[in-house]
Design a protein around this nucleic acid. Structure first.
Lengths: 220, 220
DNA sequence: CTTGACACTGAACATTTGTTCTGTTATTAT
DNA sequence: ATAATAACAGAACAAATGTTCAGTGTCAAG
């Protein structure tokens, strides 16, 4: 046996390196012949041979009968950025903005870029939006003026999730950990030194969304 | 003239949206016929017609006579991702770890990915490292258990910057806003309801680094 | 030595795919 | 209304490209 069981042969590495550089430069994958030209492999069938091995080893995915149908897995999956629309401010004294179900596709003038690895896996990105915290009224949620909260659109929450809530009786938006306990709602501040809010009637809490990520930039 | 000078027509947007989703799902660009199928354009020449316009408007680049030779430009700009080494925990009761000056390569698995747009512009990425906050002793800095703080390596601070400090007399690491005022150091908690620490002798504060970013992931 | 796996060659072939061309329909300006 | 330009249809064509296959060479194990 000439092929090592452990790791990649020099040709495998050369092909992967070329795939990555070509892709980042041109934005589309190379053809089999282009791969061969740049890795000193003279026959298309040999390139095909190595590509099949790389697919078997899960470095790439291929679509048969599709030209340049190569999907580089290792780098492309981990290096994904998501642009989340920053749709407004969240203030204690007023209802927070929630984007419509179909917010227009191409207006990410004011979007914040977040690595997908920071977000919960398997979430639909279309349901995510970001708000900038305005004022110091959410310090009991350990959220400061200027922080950015990334929200996931939802009307219901499971116990233990941090949610944005509109409290009808106080005319107030707040960020709290949500617990529904035998008919009563307990809203727990993130700051462990502060006491929870207990609400007997669950109907006066309107869940606006679920907090997915908090980002605080210390600029200057 | 039928074509609007301002902005993109619905078909332009539809094509761009399809390009982006196809590319992120499959890892390679769609063919002209695939674009047509998914945008209700029946003729390849019409798709070609729109692609040429999008290239003229600098939304894409095309390589002639190359199948799937489309490079989506707008998204590649936001493609700057930085991996910051997560070197340990920060606990109030013990000194925090500071990576050595020499470029010791870290395990890329234990790094966190951050969009460069979230970081201060022009910073040397080599000076950045991340710590996970352990325990609830930093809630006066609005930082919670489990939060990730991205630090910049430095031994000195300017007024108003949030820094990690080792207090000799208390044997304690703390995160505070730093102010040097005529020979005295004032350490201001991020939480505006809490009082500052005043220190007459600046020599007992050891600045470990400057806080650049705080990230809180609300998993589950 | 023989065998079998792996690595590789070269070419033919079928399909995919971009390009081009002629013509038609819609929209706008004069 | 008329002309001009943009938007679209359909088909034919040529090039790019993936696939397949019959061989050749190499190397290590039996």
């Amino acid at each position: 046996m000439a092929r090592k069981r452990t790791g990649l042969s020099p040709r495998h590495k050369k092909i992967l390196a070329f795939l990555e550089s070509f892709l980042s430069e041109r934005g589309y994958p190379p053809s089999i012949r282009e791969i061969g030209d740049h890795t000193q492999i003279s026959s298309t069938s040999v390139v095909n041979y190595y590509l099949n091995q790389l697919e078997e080893m899960n470095y790439i995915e291929r679509e048969s009968n599709v030209s340049r149908g190569i999907n580089l897995l290792k780098t492309s999956l981990s290096n994904t950025l998501v642009s989340i629309p920053l749709v407004g401010n969240i203030v204690a004294g007023e209802p927070m903005p929630v984007p419509a179900s179909d917010f227009s596709y191409y207006d990410p003038d004011s979007g914040i870029d977040v690595a997908r690895s920071l977000l919960p896996a398997g979430d639909r990105m279309e349901d995510l939006y970001a708000l900038r915290v305005h004022g110091e009224s959410m310090i009991d949620a350990m959220v400061n003026d200027g922080d950015i909260v990334v929200m996931k659109k939802t009307n219901q929450a499971r116990n233990g999730e941090m949610v944005a809530i509109w409290l009808n009786d106080r005319d107030e938006t707040t960020l709290k950990y949500f617990y529904l306990e035998n008919g009563h709602v307990r809203l727990q501040p993130a700051n462990p030194t502060m006491k929870p809010i207990l609400i007997d009637d669950p109907s006066i809490v309107e869940i606006q969304g679920k907090v997915v990520l908090v980002i605080r930039q210390l600029d200057q």
